[in-house]
Structures are given as structure tokens and as C-alpha cells.
Design a protein around this nucleic acid. Structure first.
Lengths: 110, 110
DNA sequence: CTATCGTACAACCAAATGGTTGTAGATCAG
DNA sequence: CTGATCTACAACCATTTGGTTGTACGATAG
């Protein structure tokens, strides 16, 4: 399925975005309350440009949105991306539970 | 906290492991039913060594276990790693919900 | 015993990642 | 207007990643 290829790329980006502790921290912070890019940059021991790149990665993964306000760029958490990741892991868990149930069935038969 | 640094590295590995569609597929398959490394390798349009590396990444992330059986190496899904990832995303969702609730409270007051 | 199978691992390569510095354009404060 | 602030983006660099091929070795089948 062609559609699923898109979905796979989307998931690649999603999990890739989560695979860095600075980015996870940014998601946490902007979910609690919005912040400018420079506001975020002040929190980490790295350059502004580095933080800017992290925000860009999160934006591409739909985990965060950016909105211009004056000369600042306001970053906010985006629930949708989060839900997508959770839903996938839920699927995996469901598969796992099915397997456990099947084994339980086999044991019950024996 | 020093302990949390370990946890962060662990999470890096976990999400990094999920950030590849081949690896997600492997997790799905070996969760449904165990498989040898060569059995898995036969499924994908890449070399045995490449699949071997993917399995190693999953093993390091505790998403999969390997066990020698004769000359084969049997790969199985590991529920623990999956749960860890889900729990983290649950945390994020909880933070989000708190925020939404807070906004709802503010609106209720107004 | 010998050939084959399944695995491990090293060496190599191209591309992506995570960081840097530097330059330049808006926007705001005084 | 001038200077400071916030952002964007390019160029560069080291390391990691995802793939390859080739070699070696234990376990199994005939």
C-alpha cells in the first residue's frame, strides 16, 4: 500500500524526533506552556542554532507548532503527533496481548 | 540526578530503535511469533548482515531478546521495552491533559 | 569427513545527525 | 535613526547510521 509508505516515513520522523533527550525536554516544556525559540535556547548548554534545529526536527515530526509573534517565534506542543506515537505502541501492545491470550488458550486446552 | 541520565540514554536507544520501518516490522513479527535471524533476513530486500545489525539495535534497546538454539539464533519480542516507551508517552499525555484541564478551569472561571 | 547453513564480525562507504560559527534580515527599544 | 534582539540559513566538521562485501567459525546434514 502506497499510503502506508507515507505513514511509515511519518513514524520514522516521529520516533526519530523522540530519540534525543534535548528534544524530549523541549516537547515537555512547550506542552506545559508555550515558549519562544530563544527562550528555549537559553535553557540548554548549546548554541541557539542547535536548539533551532531541534525545534525544526520536532516541527517536521508534527510534535510541535511554530507561530510568529512580533520578532519571536512561539513554540507550542502538538497533541496530534503524540497521539500518533501512542496509538502505534498501543497496536504493538495489542499484538502482544493477542499472543499471550493465544498461549493461555493453548494451555487451557491441554 | 545521575540515575536519570541512564534512563535518558535508555530512552534514546528505545526511540532510535523504533525510528526505522524495518525494525518496527521485525518487532511486530517476533512479537507475534519467534523467528531466527536468517528467517527474518529472508523477508527483506537487504543483506543478512544488515538484518543482523537491525536485530542488534533492537536487542540493545531491550525490545527483543536473542537465544541460541542449535546453529540458529532465535529472536523474540520483549514486552518490557515496549512498556517503557508507552509509559513515557503516557507521561507526556498526562502533562498535556493537565494543561488542557488548566485552560478549561480558566475558561470556567471567566 | 565434507559441504552447507546460520552466525559473527571487520572493513568500507555514502548519507544523515548533532553540533559549531558566521552572515544577514526583521523587529523592537530608546 | 541606531543598536540590540530574535530568527533564519549556509557552510563546515566529527560521529553515527544503514547499508555493503568478505572472511571465519561452530553446528548440522548427507
Amino acid at each position: 500500500m502506497v499510503v502506508d509508505q507515507l505513514r511509515e516515513v511519518e513514524l520514522d520522523r516521529l520516533f526519530q524526533a523522540f530519540a534525543d533527550s534535548t528534544r524530549r525536554d523541549i516537547v515537555r516544556r512547550v506542552t506545559v506552556g508555550e515558549s519562544s525559540v530563544s527562550g528555549l535556547a537559553a535553557l540548554y548548554a548549546m548554541s541557539f542554532a542547535a536548539v533551532q534545529k531541534h525545534v525544526a526536527v520536532l516541527e517536521r515530526a508534527s510534535l510541535v507548532t511554530k507561530e510568529k509573534r512580533g520578532r519571536e517565534q512561539i513554540v507550542r506542543g502538538n497533541h496530534e503527533g503524540l497521539q500518533k506515537a501512542r496509538r502505534l505502541l498501543d497496536e504493538y501492545e495489542a499484538i502482544w496481548r493477542q499472543r499471550v491470550d493465544r498461549i493461555a488458550d493453548i494451555l487451557a486446552e491441554g
